[in-house]
Amino acid sequence: MGLSAEYYLDQLATESARLREVAELGLDAPVPSCPGWTVDTVVSHVAQVYLHKVEVLRLGALPKPWPPEGIDERDTLELYDEAALAIVAALTQAGTTQQTWTFNPRDSTSGFWYRRMALETVVHRVDAELAHDVVTPIAAELALDGIDELLFPSLGGPWWDESWTKHPIDATVRITAEGRSWTVRADATSVTVLQGAEGDADAEIFGDPGAVYLWLFGRTSDDAVGFTGSEDVVREFRGRLSEATQ
């Protein structure tokens, strides 16, 4: 867990309230960052993610079966309001040290879900805002933490042993935002993420923390950030990221 539990809960409350506010602008609006989705899809997805993690925290394991029968028939905003309250209550009750299922091989505590739920919410808040062209900034501290989490465990976790990637990049990529850097070494079967800017890189992506975070998540265009080095490496790296965040 990169930041404090209190910070994550505060961001979760702020971002979930903003998502709810934007949803009131219209659930039928198409979401350009998620082709085929509407704002209704985004809000329903986030609600179900919240409720799933409530069960993960309750059980300490993945709930099976999932999703519950009839959940897709619920009123979207009613379900979202219920879920937003439930996830905050579940996290607060669990604290940060309870053992539970996560997808981070280095962290099997409930603290992982404080971070993940705050960051899940901010990305989908932006999705809803993009649908209505009302995008607001991401807090720099949260965006930097989001970059860190996206690079590990989402990208740098143990996912590539079977060489299933369609983007078998063999290069070193550097990510830099607000004086902080990450160095990513990727090949067809592994991704290693190091803190800092030691050594040479084949390409570098840099810019404002929020812009870099959204670019890494495929939520903004190339002109929102800066690049140096190989364009082919940047393109393949972006493809590898898309596989890791589907």
Rank of each mutant, 00 (worst) to 15 (best):
R180L: 08
K166C: 14
W37F: 05
G70T: 10
D107C: 07
L12Q: 03
E243S: 02
L59S: 08
P105L: 12
A197M: 08
E78P: 01
H124P: 10
S181E: 03
L119F: 12
P153I: 14
G210I: 11
R20D: 14
W159Q: 13
V49Q: 11
P63W: 08
G226K: 04
W66Q: 00
L59G: 09
L91I: 00
D148W: 08
R58M: 08
A186R: 11
D145W: 07
H45M: 08
I138A: 07
L214I: 11
A140I: 08
L62N: 15
M117Y: 14
F152C: 15
E69Q: 13
V173L: 10
A188H: 03
V31G: 09
V233P: 12
P105W: 12
R74P: 01
F206Y: 11
L19I: 08
T76M: 00
A61F: 04
Y50E: 15
P209Y: 09
Q93V: 14
P67L: 01
A61Q: 14
H124I: 04
H132A: 02
S154H: 14
A29I: 09
F217H: 15
L25D: 14
A139C: 07
K64V: 09
W66G: 02
A131V: 08
R240V: 00
V88F: 05
D148Q: 09
E21H: 15
L85I: 15
G207F: 05
W159S: 03
V46P: 11
T183I: 01
P63S: 02
